[in-house]
Amino acid sequence: MAIIELLNQDMKQAMKDKDKVKLSVIRMVKASIQNEAIKQKKDALSEEEELTVLARELKQRKDSLHEFKEAGREDLVSKLEEEIKIIQAYMPEQLSDDELEQIVVQTIEEVQAESKKDMGKVMSALMPKVKGKAEGARVNQFVQQHLQ
């Protein structure tokens, strides 16, 4: 089932349950997906493109969460943490450290990378494989560990 269809179902359920926070988050995410489709001049996005939008929304909230924690805004921190949980429910299951490391090592061998100079080559081959399943910063960290 496409993410947008799942969002539509959950939006209806949130309306019935009078869950204002979930409803608000789902509406924002749906709007982002629809805006991306308009931007790309498409009727609908592929599931991979929907995942890209979801990942962007999640990253924005995590960045904001970090900023609010530093500023001591606990009222906004709890709200954002709830929004993050809601969005994460639509993301694929995240890769464990072992799984990610295995994919990183395999990709390094595939592109025959030998040093940190090959970082871009490795990342460009690796990111499509882990899209939505691991954050870019985490992937970058593993690649740097394996490239000396």
Score class of each variant (00 low, 15 high):
residue 75 D to E: 07
residue 72 G to P: 07
residue 132 G to D: 03
residue 11 M to V: 13
residue 4 I to K: 05
residue 40 Q to A: 14
residue 73 R to T: 09
residue 119 M to A: 10
residue 145 Q to P: 07
residue 68 F to E: 14
residue 131 K to V: 01
residue 77 V to Q: 04
residue 39 K to G: 10
residue 95 L to H: 00
residue 97 D to V: 10
residue 92 P to A: 07
residue 60 Q to P: 06
residue 77 V to H: 01
residue 73 R to C: 12
residue 131 K to M: 11
residue 70 E to D: 14
residue 50 E to C: 03
residue 98 D to K: 12
residue 99 E to G: 08
residue 94 Q to T: 10
residue 87 I to Q: 03
residue 84 I to P: 08
residue 31 A to R: 13
residue 113 A to M: 06
residue 125 A to C: 08
residue 132 G to P: 00
residue 80 L to D: 06
residue 145 Q to D: 13
residue 117 K to M: 10
residue 60 Q to V: 04
residue 33 I to A: 00
residue 73 R to G: 09
residue 22 K to R: 14
residue 147 L to F: 06
residue 53 V to K: 01
residue 11 M to Q: 15
residue 98 D to W: 07
residue 68 F to N: 12
residue 94 Q to S: 13
residue 122 V to H: 07
residue 54 L to S: 01
residue 89 A to Y: 10
residue 129 K to C: 08
residue 53 V to T: 09
residue 75 D to R: 05
residue 103 I to P: 04
residue 13 Q to Y: 10
residue 115 S to K: 12
residue 100 L to F: 07
residue 112 Q to S: 11
residue 125 A to V: 08
residue 142 F to L: 09
residue 62 K to F: 02
residue 29 V to L: 00
residue 3 I to K: 06
residue 93 E to V: 09
residue 9 Q to S: 15
residue 126 L to P: 01
residue 50 E to M: 02
residue 43 D to H: 11
residue 121 K to Q: 12
residue 30 K to S: 11
residue 135 E to L: 03
residue 136 G to D: 01
residue 144 Q to I: 15
residue 28 M to A: 14
residue 23 L to R: 12
residue 58 L to V: 07
residue 130 V to S: 00
residue 1 M to A: 14
residue 45 L to C: 07
residue 55 A to L: 06
residue 79 K to N: 11
residue 82 E to W: 04
residue 134 A to C: 05
residue 43 D to M: 12
